[in-house]
């Protein structure tokens, strides 16, 4: 009764008369498996942690970016860039070669960072960062161990999320400035920086500011960019599979975001002249309390 003994004769012999619980002949094999599975799990855990940290830092980054005060932005965000860079470097060695696609757990962090990166890029240059640039950016942050891969999926899903940030940004800007962010990024940075002083003389500004809200019909402003984005994202065919499911989920949210900006602008156009600066219908007035506390 022991054909199985034949495969591991040497080990078997010393335990020949054994009852149960003697060492299983498969032990050496399983010990090998254990070592490799442990390695795999360690890698996976490092990546999950990095993905979370990148997500958290990216979210904070977006929050600072969202306040229309770009001058402080770069300074305040330096720490988050650093965190993210550290995390990418930390896991870079774990996702090389064969393991490049082994740990999809990184996608959460990648998407979130993509959102922050594209938003940042937009505020600086008013253009959409390309996939190749974004991938190169992550690669350059990954350090000497090799690049962490940013997949086209990460990119696309990150861009969907960025639409939400653009929406928040435009609505906050409309609420505080009484107009849609538009024009050259430098000009925009200036108006935003002027803001704190404006707020002291809140009521006095009303008349002055109202004519300024007219130029929101410039050929290019944040809304036309949002619409262009929406158009591209809707044209995009994600195919089946996971990307398809994810994209369909995010597409609805994305459309709503563009709608919200359009509605807010409508409100501003119809009633804008009757309202004091800082008042916008149908949106959260998260800016308002802050202003009053000055």
């Amino acid at each position: 009764m022991g054909p199985k003994r034949s495969r591991d004769g040497a080990m078997k012999d010393e335990k020949s008369g054994k009852p149960e619980q003697a060492a299983s002949p498969f032990m050496p094999m399983f010990e090998g498996f254990r070592a490799e599975l442990d390695e795999h799990h360690d890698r996976r855990e490092r990546i999950i942690k990095a993905s979370r940290d990148i997500t958290a830092a990216s979210k904070k980054m977006v929050r600072t970016l969202g306040q229309p005060v770009p001058a402080f932005v770069t300074k305040g965000n330096a720490q988050y860039w650093e965190i993210i860079e550290n995390q990418y470097q930390h896991i870079a060695a774990d996702v090389q070669g064969l393991n490049a696609f082994r740990y999809p757990q990184i996608t959460g962090g990648n998407q979130e960072f993509m959102e922050a990166l594209s938003f940042h890029h937009y505020l600086e240059s008013q253009t959409l960062i390309s996939y190749d640039d974004a991938r190169a950016r992550v690669a350059s942050m990954s350090g000497s161990a090799g690049a962490v891969l940013l997949t086209p999926e990460d990119y696309i899903l990150g861009i969907f999320d960025m639409v939400g940030e653009l929406m928040r940004f435009s609505i906050t800007a409309m609420a505080t400035n009484g107009k849609l962010p538009a024009g050259q990024p430098k000009k925009e940075a200036k108006t935003s920086q002027d803001l704190p002083q404006d707020q002291d003389a809140d009521t006095m500004d009303v008349d002055e500011q109202t004519p300024a809200s007219k130029p929101s019909e410039e050929p290019r402003n944040i809304l036309s960019d949002l619409r262009a984005l929406r158009l591209q994202l809707e044209m995009f065919e994600p195919g089946g599979g996971k990307l398809g499911a994810d994209v369909r989920k995010k597409a609805d949210v994305m459309r709503e975001c563009v709608d919200k900006v359009e509605k807010a602008l409508y409100g501003l156009t119809v009633r804008g002249t009757e309202r004091p600066k800082g008042w916008v219908p149908d949106v959260r007035e998260d800016r308002r309390p802050e202003v009053e506390s000055y």
């Binding site: 253009t127 959409l128 390309s130 996939y131 050929p219 960019d225 619409r227 158009l231």
Partner: peptide
């Protein structure tokens, strides 16, 4: 208003 915007390089999405 949604004229071909200078924001997006169409090649980005074609490539993707």
């Amino acid at each position: 208003m949604s004229a071909p915007s200078g924001m997006i390089d169409p090649a980005i999405f074609e490539g993707l």
